[in-house]
């Protein structure tokens, strides 16, 4: 499930929903991204998150579908906030549910790596020195490329999706 919203979310309630009525779920993995209070040596008073509404949901749906194809997930959720957020506030939740932990861990990390480099959001920081757009980090692209390399090398995710790949079945 995908949600793009201004308001906060309840992590516990969202994770409960992932496993509700799904007896096969043996593990949940969650990543929660928060607004930091420092940018380098400057104190952050707030950030603003801008996004491209008509592209955002489509992009997030694509990545969730890709994760579901690569790993045997029973359920997943991605919630990303936009607008003005203060230090300590939650920005994003990625939650994955699977029979076993490894698929849940890997799929969660994959989705986070992907949305750091592909989901159309932009952060602007407010500090006492003014405002500035946050620069993309090369390390985020490197983190995503890791998943490509694993595929290219023929290893792929260490937990294979159940059954035939969906693309082949269609």
């Amino acid at each position: 499930m995908i949600r793009v919203q201004r308001e906060d979310f309840d992590v516990g309630a969202e994770l409960d929903r992932l496993s509700a009525d799904r007896g096969s779920v043996g593990g949940l993995c969650a990543f929660v991204g928060l607004v930091r209070d420092m940018s380098g040596r400057r104190a952050i008073s707030a950030i603003e998150l801008e996004h491209y509404p008509s592209m955002t949901e489509r992009a997030l749906e694509q990545i969730e579908a890709e994760a579901t194809e690569r790993w045997p997930l029973d359920a997943s959720i991605v919630i990303h906030r936009f607008g003005r957020l203060e230090p300590g506030e939650r920005i994003v939740l990625v939650g994955t549910a699977s029979a076993h932990r490894q698929a849940a861990f890997e799929a969660c990390e994959f989705i986070v790596d992907w949305l750091k480099t592909k989901a159309p959001f932009w952060k602007r920081e407010h500090t006492d020195a003014g405002t500035r757009w946050v620069d993309a980090r090369a390390s985020d692209s490197a983190a995503l490329a890791r998943w490509d390399r694993e595929d290219a090398a023929g290893h792929g995710p260490s937990v294979r999706a159940r059954g035939a790949p969906k693309k082949a079945a269609e």
Binding site: G33, Y52, M55, R58, A59, H80, P120, W122
Partner: peptide
């Protein structure tokens, strides 16, 4: 049209083109 494209992508009159910096969400 809400999909990443490169500089060689062909354009038509009904298209929506977006320009933006490398993303910094998450």
């Amino acid at each position: 049209n809400q999909e990443y494209a490169n500089l060689d992508a062909q354009l038509g009159p009904g298209d929506e083109v977006a320009f933006f910096p490398p993303v910094t969400g998450g």
